[in-house]
């Protein structure tokens, strides 16, 4: 996704507008309907909205940091399997032949 507003295609922009409108409706709805809170924290205005936003941002942030700990090169397990086993994947029986050829071309 680019930061240039004009490069967003029309259909995507339409969906964005739908999303913003839904957000607005949900903010209003928060004060109109009784939310039957079970817990004290649910009584906070717009609790589920900001909790959803914050949870999502937190998950992405932790995930991004996790990359420093658990991300390895793609052939990590193959490289450490000893020399008698080939690191290159052998032919994948499940992929239809046409797609397999296209992949091979790309790899070269």
């Amino acid at each position: 996704m680019t930061s240039n507003e004009s490069s967003i295609p029309g259909s995507a922009r339409k969906w964005l507008r739908v999303l913003f409108a839904t957000c607005a409706v949900l903010v209003v709805a928060d004060f109109v309907f009784d939310k039957h809170p079970h817990f004290g924290f649910e009584k906070l205005p717009l609790f589920h909205a900001w909790f959803g936003f914050a949870a999502f941002a937190f998950i992405v942030a932790v995930g991004a940091l996790l990359r420093f700990v658990v991300a390895r090169s793609e052939d990590y397990y193959e490289r450490h399997n000893g020399s008698q086993r080939s690191a290159m994947p052998s032919e994948d029986a499940e992929v239809e032949p046409e797609a397999r050829e296209a992949e091979d071309h790309r790899r070269v």
């Binding site: 999303l19 914050a54 941002a57």
Partner: peptide, 24 residues
């Protein structure tokens, strides 16, 4: 309402993170 709030605002978070180029 509560479920939609959770989901729709989480989607909003995704768009904001994409826009800020913070999404991995």
């Amino acid at each position: 309402v509560t479920q939609l709030q959770l989901l729709v605002f989480a989607i909003l978070a995704f768009l904001v993170l994409q826009k800020l180029r913070l999404y991995p």
